[in-house]
Structures are given as structure tokens and as C-alpha cells.
Amino acid sequence: MDIKLLEDKLNSKGTVSVIGCGRLGVRVIMDILEVHRGGFKKIEVFDAAKIDMNDVIHRKYGGKVGEYKVSFIKDFFPEKIDAVFEDISKENLEKISGNIVLVVFAGGDTLNLRKKIIEYCKTTKKICIGTNGVFGLNCNVKVGDAKYENGPVEFLKMEEEGHLVVGTGKFIKDMEPITPYSLDKIAEKMVIEALKIKKEIIK
């Protein structure tokens, strides 16, 4: 068995786009960075926000209050991170270059934008993975198809199969907090699903 040949086959390949570098996004990015042998060659990160006092996870990794989130993550691993100092909108969807797209932004009414990203990924043959609730204390994180899952993803009203979602299925109205434990599990499952898909589509 030629170990060197096998190692070469497990070189990092492809680009994953992470839409959002908040509490969940930074966990996803850090998990991807830790993948050894067979991970992604590049991580494209979109976010226009700056770190504030409440961004504890960023500060734990060394980010400074007032620093752009994508700047901090770019400085953390400049060879692998393509930092985009913009939020994705319907006007700049064409900037998404990854083979796989992870939609991890939150806050406010983002439903229409999520739909636009999913449609764009479908027309450009990119694989899109999103979330389905991040609230909850029991950390029961599930992976499923958005067409069939219960939870916040129901508002997307997906008519076709193929949009993978990961989450607790809980709504803000359930009045349970967002804990680091649920975010860690969601990030873990999103990265695993992205790596499974990468193995199939990026040779």
C-alpha cells in the first residue's frame, strides 16, 4: 500500500462558501479549518458585521471588539480564508463561488433572502445547506430535507426536495435560549454533511 499516494488523494479540494460569520458561522468555519486530510482547500466567508461584546465565541478565539468578523477569521488562517466584507443580498449572489454553500446567518426577517440563495444555488448547480432552528435546551439536532422537516424551515415552503437543513426545529416563540451546546452540535453536523457531499461531487 502506497501511503504517500493515498495521502495525495486526500489533499484538500474545492471551496465552501459560508454565508455569515456569527455565533454559528464562526463555529462552522473553525470546525472546517480543523479537518485534516480531505477537507476544503478554501473557505469563502461573507459578513459585513463587526465583533461586539456579545460575540463571546469570536473573542475566545482572539477576535477584538470592533474588528470585522471576516478580518479576524482571515487573520486566523490567511492561506485558507477568502474574506468578503459584505453581507449577501439578492444583488450580489453571483459572488458566491463555493461548490457547497452553508447558510448560517440569522436575525430579523431573512426568509426571502434564504429563498433567493437556495434558488441561486439550484440554478448554478451548487449544493446549499441551511439551518432549521437554533433555539432549544435539549440539543436534539436533526439533519433532514427542508421539504419534509418541521420547524422554522416550514416557512420556506419548499416544493422540491434537495435543500438539506440542520437544526433543533425550535422557534423563537418556544422561549428557549440559544446555547453554545446546540450551536456546537449544529456546526458539527453541518460540517459532516458538507464533507459527505464534497466527497461525492469534488473528485
Rank of each mutant, 00 (worst) to 15 (best):
V18F: 05
I57Q: 11
V191I: 14
K173N: 13
R23H: 07
I51F: 07
F155V: 02
G130Y: 07
K116R: 09
E149Y: 01
L137N: 12
R37E: 04
G62L: 02
K173D: 13
E44P: 03
G66S: 15
F77E: 15
K64H: 03
G25W: 07
K60R: 15
K90I: 12
N132A: 13
M175W: 13
F40V: 01
Y61N: 05
C21M: 14
G66E: 12
S71Q: 14
M1C: 09
T123L: 14
I29T: 09
V141F: 03
K69I: 11
I57M: 12
L113A: 09
G20V: 01
G130E: 02
E176H: 09
M30L: 07
K116Y: 08
N138A: 05
E160T: 03
A48G: 11
F76D: 04
K60H: 14
I73H: 06
I29G: 02
T15L: 15
C21W: 06
V56I: 12
D174F: 09
Y181N: 04
N150M: 03
V143G: 02
I43R: 06
V134D: 01
I197D: 07
K64T: 15
D82Y: 03
D52K: 13
E161M: 01
K196T: 03
K157E: 10
E7L: 13
K173T: 12
V16D: 09
K122N: 11
K142E: 12
G108T: 10
G14L: 10
T179I: 05
G14E: 10
K41R: 11
V103S: 02
R23N: 11
P180T: 13
V45A: 08
A187T: 12
M30K: 14
V141I: 15
M30P: 00
F105I: 07
K116C: 13
F46N: 05
Y120K: 05
G133I: 09
C139Q: 11
L6S: 10
I29K: 04
F171V: 01
K198T: 11
L137V: 10
L113M: 06
D184T: 12
V56M: 10
E86N: 02
D82S: 04
I29W: 04
G136T: 06
D75C: 09
L183G: 06
P180K: 11
H58P: 13
E159P: 01
I73F: 14
N138H: 08
K173F: 09
K125F: 14
